[in-house]
Design a protein around this nucleic acid. Structure first.
Lengths: 219, 219
DNA sequence: ATTTATTTTTAGACAAATCTAAAAAATATA
DNA sequence: TATATTTTTTAGATTTGTCTAAAAATAAAT
């Protein structure tokens, strides 16, 4: 089934509000969508008729199973595009949200499947949020900084805490990008620097400061 | 200035019809857009008010300079996305049009600029149509099959005539893709096979049949 | 030059998504 | 418990893009 861009935006925002409280209310959704409560009420009725929403007048509302699946699919598209924009097009992570909000509505299934494969099935987006897989399963992923990874472990870069041009320049030099695989080789106690192996490049040493700013996850 | 998806679709289709005849008429545009002539007339008035269209009742219409610039920008976005879908996501060229029709309406300038750079500033899309540059200049490009390229010339693959899985499998083997650079080394008269060098791979020999199916352009 | 046919436009209606202003329900306060 | 406040909903209007049916203009044919 296909939904309008407006419907998708409602569904997605209800989904996000539900992460904070089980039941969502009209005013907060109106605020989130930058619209008026009256408009929200209108749309709630439509979504209820389409079986996407459990809604009782004056009592609040929540997504049905069906609505939830739709929402997760939108979130998946959004986060895949964010990953693409950062890792392939070189956007900084704080600039991609609004573009991804437009791209997420291009709903061709094969497109998303192929994009996912092209990006190598990323599990975490550049903001550190998990990317649902094609079946709607949301990976639970433990993120930690490189400074906290034990020796001889292979990890994948998920996000970078400090996004200053200075650190981005350095990471570029190390060939470190979001999604790249890193093996932690050895920790040196003198200055707490760490030897790592980035992808297929020769091992190199990064400072503790850099290590603390790179967040990674396993597998 | 920003335009609705509907407006953009009208502008783009007027542009395409103008390639065939200077003046466009209501019925043909209605046919192209799969809509009714009455709806077209309504939109023509709006586009005229926005200075995108020269329009005289019952006489036909054409894009203004401003309208033309907008159209070329949409075409640019469409063809860049088509190039992306084929070369990066592995779609076949006859399957990308409808997806690109959706992606083309994501109008963020920086996105298109970065996409262009990521794709290495392609000049021809997978259908063999030229991709306008950021200033709206449309490259005039001479395409020919590899079989017709003189020795020692470097060319860029622009399209493949036969899109059967059989030839795609073979091209994949040769590392030949749309956008890849090929140097024509030597022609062998016995079977008219041709030695080529694909990118940075070792030289290889392709049959005349393959050569005739690969279209390329210079620079 | 009329008549006929085609093309284009107008007039008025409709659906989606929105708004304002007012009414109704729920919640908080005295 | 009665009153005040907040939240939510309804009623009716608006905008964008569409439609059908009828009228007007243009083009073709006798």
């Amino acid at each position: 089934m296909n939904f309008s861009i407006t419907e998708e935006n409602y569904i997605k925002n209800i989904y996000h509000l539900q992460q904070q409280s089980e039941l969502v209310n009209t005013n907060s959704l109106a605020f989130e969508l930058q619209t008026k409560p009256a408009s929200v009420t209108d749309m709630l009725k439509k979504l209820q008729i389409k079986n996407l929403l459990d809604y009782e007048k004056y009592k609040g509302f929540r997504l049905t199973n069906k609505g939830n699946k739709v929402a997760i699919n939108i979130v998946r598209r959004h986060r895949l595009w964010e990953f693409f924009l950062v890792t392939k097009l070189g956007f900084e992570w704080d600039k991609v949200h609004s573009i991804a909000e437009e791209l997420e509505h291009v709903s061709n299934q094969e497109l998303i499947q192929k994009l996912d494969r092209f990006l190598n099935h990323p599990q975490i987006d550049p903001h550190g949020d998990p990317i649902p897989d094609g079946n709607g399963k949301i990976p639970i992923i433990h993120q930690l900084s490189i400074a906290d990874v034990i020796e001889n472990k292979k990890v994948i870069v998920s996000s970078v805490a400090n996004q200053s041009p200075a650190i981005l320049e350095l990471l570029n030099h190390y060939h470190i990008n979001i999604g790249t695989e890193i093996k932690i080789n050895q920790r040196f106690s003198f200055d707490r620097s760490i030897e790592i192996k980035v992808g297929k490049y020769a091992p190199c040493i990064i400072s503790e400061l850099v290590a603390k700013n790179i967040f990674v996850h396993h597998e």
